[in-house]
Design a protein around this nucleic acid. Structure first.
Lengths: 204, 204, 204, 204
DNA sequence: TATGAATGAGCCTTCATTCAT
DNA sequence: AATGAATGAAGGCTCATTCAT
């Protein structure tokens, strides 16, 4: 049993380290970020970081979890808006695109750790989970709308989210390396909406 | 006068190193692959690797180039087949999906280096170029078909490839972390074909 | 609140490294002394040396500074004695010769780094400074005596130190490679005194 | 027995390597000059250098010998001029100063290798020998003049050269790190002449 | 709870040297 | 007589980790 007061202070520091880690990883990438970099960014000593986290591996894993949480939370918010179905869908897609386009440091970290996860099984699981949750939101919404409207998808409904979310992810990837003009970007997203609607048989 | 082929041994060794690098990078990732690992995989000494490549950076850059070349070459082959438009399109999409699904070590290396490229400008350029070429193939094919058939796309034609290639890339990403069942996979690809045709106004 | 002297251990280690470096450099020379050699001589790990000094270059520069400081301090002491001018001059010359003849490891290090300074601009400045300070002591003393006695030098007074100190340095150089017998050495130094006096117009 | 023709070509290459070594060593110093640097400067491969010289050590030793030879030869020339004693002495001192001031690459190499010789016994011997020969020239001349004129030195004659040559060497050392103005330089040399004459009891 | 000090393994790179050709 | 290829031992340096305080 640890006294509560002591715990609280520690908890604050812990979070400080996590935040610093996100910042540092976003800026320089996993391969170029040392524990010391993170400690400095957090305004602490290396020793302190190791006091809060068993190892770098542990820290990274928790960073991933935090970033994934932030991502899924934001995705959830995108769908949990009120409104007329068509509009709601459109808004959600736009928001999910915005997340990917302007995504703060967390997104960069996720992208970076994705590569790590290719080889590090410990990271793969939470990564996979994040993807699942991300699509999960969409799934829920879709089944709800389908039920509501008695519509039928051209594609098995549980695969719709994969198509949409994957397309968004792929577009974000290309966007990073080869950005579209603003006008083109607008048209691509519009097209994505159209496609979604058509898959979904919603009359526009 | 140097005997013909005096450089052959060197060239062979160079390629051996490159291949070993691809293997090693694919297996353990950039951050966990040392020059020594590569040397051992190539059956040489560390010194020999540095004899053929100025630095690790240089080696990595050349690995990237090679992987990108292999990728684009394969993509080119996917589109440069003969046949009736509809069938050709379908076949090309399938081949591009296969590339991503079963993609050998080169694909893993590319994925890994993509994360590096997020922070390393030297890698970003060739990466971006690969993406451009990859879409380029599709663009050419599409304009050709559109001309041929007098069809009009619902989306500006130069953006079609981005949608399709990006969707494939995104699907591959999700597939890696959360594989579909074979049946589902088949349906997703089928859906992708349908979408493509519909964007394209080809009656199925 | 950091307990008093928390840095003491570090400072002590730092000095230990510097001392070890002087010893090692004196024995094997710059080109043949690795950071590891120094670490071992200091009873530490290579890492510890790099903990205290940013780089080998940094360490060497500080070694130079320390040796130069020790040298100039000793030279200062040689002139800052009390006594009758003639005797004081004689004593100072003898002491400066002794410094050069029996000069401990610091002198060897300085000699070694002099060669480095030929090519490394970073070392040249402190080296030049040491020479200047070394002559500076003599200059001060000479002007003082000249004023005191109303004498006039046959050579512009500010050049006297250069002649004397340079002669001492040159003699030390030759002495190292080709030592004189004790008797000859005594006579050479005596001659140097004589010359100095004669330049100075002090009747002996 | 090696055929003569073959030998000649080899001899030329050997000299080429030695020259290149002098150039390279003069520019970057012993510690920073690799066998490869020398090979490149000589327009050959590393292997070729090792064909002509057993080891780097061997090469360096021969470089030293060559530089020392060039130095002593030039010194000899300085004294072997004709003329009236006083003028001859003056001219020789000036020439020896010029050697030290403007000394080409060989001088820099000697300075550099002097530091090496502090720790490497194999270099010490030839170095010591060079110094001896350098002073030897002066000794010979002095005894000759003394005999000729029936003069007596204030200092044992065999020590005169040491004083003069050492002074010149010391002055050159200081000059390198802290150059005099042209006017001051002139006065210092003039002073050195005066001192020499006075030691020598030649009326000016 | 946090720090400064220290470690030791490992990294990228350089280099003298060897050797088949 | 000379080269290109390769080696292996160091070398300087970084870094995750440990620990006394």
């Amino acid at each position: 049993m640890r006294p509560r007061g002591a715990y609280k202070k520690s908890e604050a520091s812990r979070r400080q380290v996590l935040e610093a880690a996100v910042t540092a990883l976003a800026e320089h990438g996993f391969a170029q970020t040392s524990v010391n970099d993170i400690a400095v960014a957090a305004g602490m000593s290396k020793g302190a970081v190791h006091y809060h986290f068993e190892s770098k591996e542990d820290l990274i894993a928790q960073v991933l979890e935090q970033c994934a949480a932030m991502m899924t939370e934001r995705a959830r918010a995108a769908w949990n808006t009120e409104g007329e179905p068509r509009e709601k869908l459109r808004a959600a897609i736009r928001e999910m695109w915005t997340m990917r386009r302007q995504g703060g440091p967390e997104l960069r970290v996720l992208a970076d750790l994705m590569a790590q996860a290719l080889h590090d099984p410990k990271l793969k699981k939470p990564m996979a989970n994040m993807f699942r949750v991300l699509r999960g939101e969409v799934v829920e919404y879709f089944s709800q709308v389908l039920d509501e409207l008695g519509l039928q998808s051209k594609v098995p409904p549980h695969l719709l989210p994969r198509l949409i979310v994957a397309a968004l992810d792929g577009l974000a990837l290309h966007e990073f390396f080869d950005p579209l003009t603003d006008a083109d970007e607008e048209q691509v997203i519009a097209a994505l909406e159209t496609i979604t609607f058509s898959l979904f048989d919603i009359e526009e």
